[in-house]
Nucleic acid binder design. Structure first.
Lengths: 148, 148
DNA sequence: TATAATAGTTATATTTTTGTAACCGTTATA
DNA sequence: TATAACGGTTACAAAAATATAACTATTATA
């Protein structure tokens, strides 16, 4: 019973994934130079605040050398900054800049606009349902697979 | 009011997207040689049946040359096959093979197993909620942004 | 029938993503 | 204090995704 439910959840998420990829990651290229991976980093910085390089690697499940590349590019463009930890000088804290925050919001807004053209097909009840259901999926997914 | 609701939906989906990427696309590499894009193609073939190259391009929002590359690789590995259209010989229909279907199911099962280790943290009520909510998100997203 | 439009492929180049090994500096520990 | 462990970077290689132009074959249309 529980197994069936878990399979259904996996099935649903596997179906949702390419639809989001198509309507979020893909349109990104047309409105910003930030790569999808860069957006993921900014999103985590916004949600969690300052993060070390290793933390970012855990949140994204990516090896550290890749994180260095992504963060370097974000720094080049002024979206994040490095901060040394005075207590443990091995650790480097990454924090999002004002520009990073505002550009991130603008890009989300652009994606939202893009999505609006599809969402207008829905009536008020469906909109309400999608709003509630996506909120629930988001909250639960964050709670179980956010870190590591 | 409606605008606020649409913004909330976009915000939720943008947050969900990297979580799915991390728990679906990334673990794929460890259990199969099929690329994420290949999985997207197989998923659409399973849902919609036989599709032309152009149809696949629309469902994935990818340019046709890229589709050729993806499909060629799927053919090499025996997951899909080409079929000529006798009525319009420009059109090539792609259909999924038995092997494609069964491997696709196995991979979904593997992802489901992988996810199970996270989902066990949820109690029955949360599991029920996630199941219902993800179903609703899936159905509505398919209805509005499946094609083109 | 000449021309335009469609479906798909080939070729090419660039960017992004992925992965691994080796390395440096710092901190912890035996 | 010598050694191991940790946090991060550099360097390198390879696969995947992206984009565009040019091309073939076929069908539609004027």
């Amino acid at each position: 019973m529980t197994k069936l439910r878990i399979d259904l959840i996996a099935e649903n998420l596997i179906t949702i994934h390419p639809l989001l990829y198509k309507s979020i990651s893909r349109p990104l290229r047309n409105c910003t130079s930030i790569t999808p991976a860069g957006m993921f980093v900014l999103g985590n910085l916004k949600r969690h605040g300052i993060l070390s390089m290793s933390d970012i690697g855990k949140y994204l499940s990516m090896p550290k050398p890749h994180i260095t590349v992504i963060v370097n590019k974000l720094i080049e463009e002024g979206y994040v900054e490095r901060q040394n930890d005075p207590k443990d000088r091995r650790i480097i804290h990454i924090h999002i800049t004002e520009k990073g925050l505002s550009d991130f919001e603008n890009i989300k807004q652009a994606i939202s606009e893009n999505m609006k053209s599809k969402l207008v097909m829905l009536n008020d009840e469906e909109l309400e349902q999608l709003s509630t259901a996506s909120q629930r999926v988001k909250d639960i997914l964050i709670s179980i697979l956010s870190k590591e």
